[in-house]
């Protein structure tokens, strides 16, 4: 029942997103959309996915879009181009897809083809083969480790892309001027700053818990990385970018992003050298189960490092660009007055 309500709400939010002209409202609605879909994932038993979607969809993506809107302006032009042909295409495609669903297995059917192929092996044998209670972790980190490696490399590449597009070469004397603008904005929120200062250590602790408890409950490197980055981003938002840059060295997090991928890849190489297949952890220790545990621990560390530092790199690049925009605008205003 709850899933039907959540899905209906999702449709309502999607329609509201289409109709809104104010981009600020659109971005907030997208955050709500992410949170609703995270709740839906909990109702569908996908706790790991819900965890990730709540941290990413409702948290970091909303934040990034807000930073971009601050640079590009929040009003959308009213005129749309060719709304009628677009509507036609959308309706025809949607109609065909709905026609296609009539042949699909019904929702929740246990005999659907998707549950017949590899899933029974994961559910029945993963405890004996991998020895980790959370099946999602054992599939992610052991059975499909090669696939996950690809995903980590994609995240790393996207991080590099953002860095190339947005990184600002800053001179020392500029940095001081920009920081004075930046700090004056953050002096007023005293209560938030003190509360956040107390919360941040616990957020870090929670991130580490999620990282290491991922074998036994929902969690793992992806979620832990996002939560860890969220704590740093919170710090940067409240205490100013320049303070945050002093706390976290930018070159250092770029290094960590690469080290994470390297750690992940080298686990594969080491298993290859010990006469196993790429990412076959059984050969890492004398006991296959101990080898699996070691391999999963190491690659989850690699994933956590890369995800956390790429998220931080992305945030710092965007925020640094925004800082530059504000600085340029102020200089322009001073010159004209």
């Amino acid at each position: 029942m709850i899933d039907i309500i959540l899905l209906t709400l999702l449709v309502v939010v999607a329609i509201a997103i289409i109709r809104m002209k104010d981009l600020f409202a659109v971005v907030m609605l997208l955050g709500i959309y992410g949170l609703l879909s995270a709740s839906f994932f909990v109702a569908m038993d996908a706790v790991d996915v819900a965890f990730t979607e709540a941290a990413v969809g409702a948290g970091i993506s909303t934040l990034l879009m807000l930073v971009v809107i601050a640079m590009t302006g929040r009003k959308e032009k009213t005129n749309r181009h060719k709304p009628l042909p677009a509507l036609c295409i959308v309706l025809i495609t949607g109609g065909l897809l709905i026609y296609g669903t009539f042949d699909m297995p019904h929702f929740g059917a246990a005999d659907a083809p998707i549950h017949q192929h590899v899933a029974p092996r994961y559910i029945n044998d993963s405890m004996a083969e991998v020895g980790v209670p959370n099946i999602v972790t054992s599939v992610l980190a052991s059975y499909r480790a090669f696939d996950t490696f690809g995903e980590v490399v994609v995240i790393f590449t996207a991080g590099i892309g953002v860095l190339t597009l947005l990184s600002v070469a800053r001179r020392k004397e500029d940095a001081e001027k920009i920081s004075s603008i930046n700090d004056s904005m953050h002096e007023q929120h005293l209560v938030i700053r003190i509360v956040a200062k107390m919360l941040i250590p616990f957020i870090f602790l929670f991130a580490l818990y999620v990282q290491f408890h991922g074998d036994f409950g929902p969690g793992g490197g992806f979620q832990a990385g996002v939560i860890f980055a969220a704590a740093i981003i919170l710090y940067a938002m409240l205490f100013g970018l320049n303070t945050a840059r002093k706390v976290i060295n930018q070159t250092f997090i770029q290094l960590i992003a690469a080290v994470g991928v390297l750690l992940y890849g080298s686990v594969g190489i080491v298993s290859l050298m010990n006469d196993g297949n790429f990412f076959n952890y059984n050969v890492l220790a004398s006991d296959p189960i101990a080898g699996q545990h070691l391999g999963i621990l190491l690659i989850e560390w690699g994933v956590g490092c890369t995800v956390a530092s790429v998220m931080m790199i992305i945030f710092f690049s965007f925020a640094g660009r925004l800082e530059l925009h504000q600085h340029n605008e102020r200089v322009k205003n001073q010159e004209s007055s």
């Binding site: 970091i60 499909r144 992806f222």
Partner: peptide
């Protein structure tokens, strides 16, 4: 149990999704 395989695929897809969205935004 529910099927764990789609969970794995989507879990990684979400994080890749935010990384590529960030690239688009930049």
């Amino acid at each position: 149990y529910s099927n764990p395989l789609p969970h794995v695929l989507i879990l990684t897809a979400i994080v890749v999704g935010i990384a590529t969205t960030a690239l688009g935004l930049s």
